[in-house]
Amino acid sequence: MSHQHSGQHDPGHHSEHFETLAIHAGQPADAGTGAVVTPIYQVSTYKQDGVGGLRGGYEYSRSANPTRSALERNLAALEGGSRGLAFASGLAAEDCLLRTVLSPGDHVVIPNDAYGGTFRLFAKVVERWGVSWSVADTSDPRAVRDAVLPETRLIWVETPSNPLLGISDITALASVAQQAGVRLVVDNTFASPYLQQPLALGADVVVHSTTKYMGGHSDVVGGALITADSALGDELAYHQNAMGAIAGPFDAWLVSRGLKTLAVRMDRHCANAERIAGMLAAHPKVTQVYYPGLPEHPGHEVAAKQMKAFGGMVSFRVEGGEQAAVAVCDRARLFTLGESLGGVESLIEHPGRMTHASVAGSDLEVPADLIRLSVGIEQVDDLLADLKQALD
């Protein structure tokens, strides 16, 4: 497969700033009623004007639905892509991408620090269909280049990564991918398009769990793919319809609603996380803090170059091993013990026993004394006090 890299995407057709696009792009007032918010078109099928005569291009809501279409246009605008696609979950989006671009015998380079569900999809599902994978430290472009085989078709990256907040240089990896004639996929869930836009840095496809910061309120599960390559966008849309794991209208509406406040929420998430990372770094019972905003973080300079701010996720390790880490999680009160991330409320979890249990015993196994925080938008002094009592 020869692959023409899309290169730098010029979002020239959108002159507005991100905060304005988030509220207006792809979201015109409803033609029928003038409603300023795209309504929830909770409908399965549409009246045709004569056989094959479609009003507005809609015939069946798996293929397209006005509420989902509005979200998909908005996603494309926010990531600077030509095509956005909304799915029932982040993993549904990943599955569609893999089945669109891979065939039996192909190979994928995956990160050594990745969401457990992504690893499980490669290791337990896709591998059965003849797709092989190998692990590389994606924060080292040379390691990634060395991992590329003649049959490699994709380089998969998460930056910041889950749960160790590793940073990968998207521009450098885009260069590796381009030279190898393979596609670069970036999972942008932790950063959100407000903080980082991988397509502008040379990536081919952006993946999101819209469940997280884009939805932002812990009330919806969803996923997205965005690409600047319109031909690839058409292929992905064909498979989205053929496989059917689409976002329903109400879920699409919730994600659209969340996106309108993404910028103001992310500003607070980032400010709170920075304060918390600083407190943890100075705490005697904390042995290590993973936060790209700390100057001592190995990816700090790359993150400062490619991100607007450093995000709302903080991970740290504690003295006393696994039992001590579990005890801190249990003692937290404002930080709710729970999986997922990116909502307005702060969450705490033990990755080894929770979100990353599926990678135990693999190259992606996480430290047993690791705690992951999704820092919410509460008043930061309350969050600091809660963590201090949980640690003490």
Rank of each mutant, 00 (worst) to 15 (best):
R73T: 00
V314E: 02
M354C: 11
H24V: 12
K305R: 15
S192E: 01
L102Q: 08
L98E: 10
V157T: 10
A327E: 03
D169H: 03
A77K: 03
Y115V: 15
G53D: 00
L370Q: 10
L184A: 04
R62G: 13
R73H: 15
L199S: 06
Y213W: 07
S139H: 08
A228C: 06
Q42I: 10
S82M: 13
D251G: 15
D95E: 13
L199V: 12
V176W: 05
S256Y: 01
H297F: 12
V326H: 03
L164Y: 06
V318K: 03
A200G: 13
L21M: 01
G248Y: 11
R268I: 15
E296S: 14
G116V: 03
I246E: 04
G34S: 05
R145H: 06
G244E: 01
T38F: 08
A357E: 11
A70I: 01
S218N: 14
T171Q: 15
P367W: 06
G117L: 10
V366F: 04
P292T: 03
R353F: 11
P292A: 15
D381H: 09
I170W: 00
N112I: 08
L347D: 01
Q48G: 12
Y194L: 05
G56A: 00
A92E: 02
N65T: 03
A180R: 07
S44V: 12
S374K: 04
A252E: 03
P193T: 13
H297G: 13
P11H: 09
V131F: 03
H239F: 06
A325P: 00
G342A: 12
N112Q: 09
G56K: 12
L98K: 07
L54P: 04
A385V: 11
H239W: 14
L173V: 15
H17F: 12
G12C: 02
E127P: 10
R120L: 13
G321F: 06
G258Y: 01
P150K: 08
